[in-house]
């Protein structure tokens, strides 16, 4: 097979079969088909992996957005003298009343059991960045998925054509054999 090109994330491009008879010698049809199957399986594996990533990003983005919403609300009410009245989730499905005097700092959970104090504007910047970078990676994942879809389609068409060519050859051989 000729040298394979790849997309920006290093996913190899599927080979295109122009004319089957030129692409593969008659004796190697079966091994070619097998190779194609293998490649499709590999592409599907990558697709599954990416779909998982997509799902995790799709659940992460609204999470970040929620936190961002709250920080933005805190910033908007920063100058109010009234304390903020809230019912917050003390535990799953358990809420408690709280009065919060205008908050200038918040604590962000950074993961790995680390929490850090941020001023509200800093928190907003950080969360916005996370939000947009998560969106960018989601776009990239979608791009990759589209690219993969292209390659899978190409390979499926290739497979169908090599297969059909094989069937045709066999029949011709049979017909030729019958005449003798």
């Amino acid at each position: 097979m000729a040298q394979l090109e790849s997309n920006p994330r290093g996913i190899p491009k599927a080979p295109f079969v122009g004319k089957v008879e030129e692409f593969t010698p008659e004796t190697e049809l079966e091994s070619t088909l097998k190779k194609f199957q293998e490649m499709i399986a590999k592409y599907k594996y990558m697709e599954g992996h990416l779909l998982q990533r997509k799902q995790s990003l799709e659940s992460k983005i609204p999470d970040i957005k929620k936190t961002l919403d709250m920080v933005e609300y805190l910033i908007a009410t920063e100058d109010s003298t009234e304390p903020m009245l809230t019912q917050y989730e003390l535990n799953d499905t358990l809420y408690a009343h709280a009065k919060i005097p205008s908050a200038k700092t918040v604590y962000l959970w950074l993961g790995a059991n680390v929490m850090l104090e941020y001023s509200t504007p800093e928190a907003k910047t950080l969360l916005s960045q996370k939000h947009s970078s998560a969106k960018t990676s989601l776009e990239q994942v979608n791009e990759d998925l589209e690219f993969l879809r292209d390659q899978i389609t190409t390979m499926e068409v290739n497979t169908a054509r090599v297969y059909n060519y094989d069937v045709k050859l066999r029949r011709q051989r049979k017909e030729a054999g019958g005449k003798e």
Binding site: K66, T67, D69, M70, Y73, L85, T86, Q87
Partner: peptide
């Protein structure tokens, strides 16, 4: 009346 509005995971009056 104050409305309990959900922002993020908490309700705010």
């Amino acid at each position: 009346d104050l409305v309990k509005y959900r922002i993020g995971d908490a309700f705010v009056s």
